[in-house]
């Protein structure tokens, strides 16, 4: 069983050392500019291309393995086919008079280049999302992410929202993912030696073999959480008490620099979004500047 997103990589790069809160903010910022509209398709692909180049540079700085990125993408092929079918073959809504048909069927049904571009556009966004989350997960220990989350939730304390309890729950859940994976692996092996074949067999047989995994896993899950809560009680855990933290998040100079860079990038792309959407002519700056393309 592999992690869907990359594991933490054992390096100590600038990105690894950044404050997790900054990294999360940056992730959100980048995701927003990924999803902004930038005029017509030619514009969109160029601008997103620039953004992708920036993301690749960050990946290189963070020493993310490009291979693990590609292997994450491998699972997307089904999605891509699905998107293609939906966007290309399902009739377009609204005014299609300005669209560029690829083929026109005798009954008047048309397939447009726009549909193709639309699916590519969505796919491109997804690829970038994966790249971004990969950077975050491979440079930030899960624990630090929960600290960051807790910090972001602090304003909710005003309305008596139990942020500490939530963050404790999340960090415990994260902590037990590898343990449970190990456990699942062990149980699978034990059942395999009792003759279960998890790979072969028809659906009914497969469902049966999955129960042989899930029932023991659930039961050990419950007994584990039981023991854990006892152990926490024994060590005097009080969910609503005032807590101190072993690790105190501190903003350093690098963090501020990173924040400014992220801010500049987000601002730049938002400006581009504004221009391409609202200023006449810019929605197709290729046409404006080089006189090419009218997509």
């Amino acid at each position: 069983m592999k992690n869907v997103f990359g594991k933490l990589t054992p390096y100590n790069t600038v990105i690894h050392r950044l404050d997790s809160r900054i990294k999360m903010l940056a992730l959100i910022g980048f995701m927003v500019i990924c999803f902004l509209p930038y005029g017509n398709y030619a514009n969109r692909f160029i601008i997103l291309g620039i953004l992708f180049a920036i993301i690749l540079v960050i990946m290189a700085i963070a020493k993310c393995s490009f291979l693990s990125f590609l292997s994450n993408l491998k699972s997307l092929w089904f999605m891509m086919i699905f998107l293609l079918i939906i966007f290309v073959f399902v009739p377009q809504a609204g005014d299609t008079s300005s669209y560029h048909p690829i083929v026109t069927f005798p009954n008047g049904y048309q397939i447009y280049y726009e549909g193709l571009f639309q699916s590519l556009h969505v796919f491109f966004r997804l690829v970038m999302m994966i790249a971004l989350t990969l950077i975050l997960t491979s440079t930030t220990p899960p624990m630090e992410m929960t600290y960051a989350l807790e910090w972001f939730l602090t304003p909710l304390r005003i309305i008596k929202f139990p942020t500490q309890v939530i963050s404790m729950t999340i960090s415990l859940a994260l902590r037990f993912i590898p343990t449970l994976l190990d456990e699942a692996n062990k149980i699978m092996k034990a059942q395999k030696s009792r003759g279960v074949d998890y790979e072969k067999g028809f659906l009914t047989k497969k469902i049966k073999s999955v129960t042989t995994l899930i029932v023991p896993l659930l039961s050990s899950c419950f007994s584990r959480s039981d023991e854990l809560s006892l152990a926490m009680n024994a060590r005097g855990y009080e969910p609503y008490g005032k807590r101190s933290s072993y690790r105190i998040l501190k903003i350093g100079r690098n963090d501020i620099v990173a924040l400014i860079i992220v801010f500049i990038i987000v601002a730049a792309f938002s400006t581009m979004c504004y221009f391409t959407q609202n200023v006449a002519g810019y929605d197709n700056f290729l046409h404006l500047w080089f006189g090419i393309g009218a997509f």
């Binding site: 062990k186 149980i187 395999k192 030696s193 003759g195 023991p216």
Partner: peptide
Amino acid sequence: KLYLLRKKVGLVFQFPEYQLF
């Protein structure tokens, strides 16, 4: 046929009580 081998070699894991379902 792997299951023939697994029938021949019975493997009892550590803490086998976890395999009951």
